[in-house]
Amino acid sequence: MTAAISLHAFAPLRSLLPGGLDAIVIGTSAGGIEALGVLLPALPATLKAAVLVVIHLPRDRPSLLIEIFTKRCALRVEEAEDKKPIEPGVIYFAPPDYHLLVDREEGRPVLALSSDELVQYSRPSIDVLFESAADVYGERLMGMVLTGANQDGAEGLAAVRAAGGIAAVQRPSDAQAAMMPGAALARVPDADYVLTLAEMAGLLAGLQ
């Protein structure tokens, strides 16, 4: 029902962001592939923001994410590589068994990987991505926490919010696994958006 969502409903987002977003960070776990399958294809080819995604997957299986989403998205889809400058309009997935962070090298935002300890039983961890992205992008960042069955992402979303960025959470009743968005909302009760996936897709489709 994406088409039924009027962009006017999201006017606050645009007014918050003269000049737009530099990056969108998305975190999800159980049910995440399906949820990303709704959101990522909705991103317009003209998007100026970079999109960084952490999804918890078993570490020992080869990841087919890049293949799956390349076919379905208007934007380029890549696995994140250490020290690579972050380009606008590219979707980056954290590689399995590594944390993905945003760092700065010579003043430019770059991707960074680490094999530090698990955070919230997870590597990659959503908190690690969100906190580092908040540090680099500040208010020019949107963090989105989707379906999932642990609490990773709650602290990260709080960091995004504290740095002036936008916090969006999938409505727990709409999520395949409500725990992750529930934990995020408990930590960030005044999140900017609490939306169904379809509404989130509408929000993303309206971005430039």
């Binding site: 944390h99 962070l101 945003v102 760092d103 700065r104 960074a112 680490s114 530090d116 690690v128 906190e131 580092s132 540090d135 680099v136």
Partner: peptide, 9 residues
């Protein structure tokens, strides 16, 4: 050392 993970530690 790379900044982002060092900051976290």
């Amino acid at each position: 050392y790379a900044g982002a993970s060092l900051k976290r530690r």
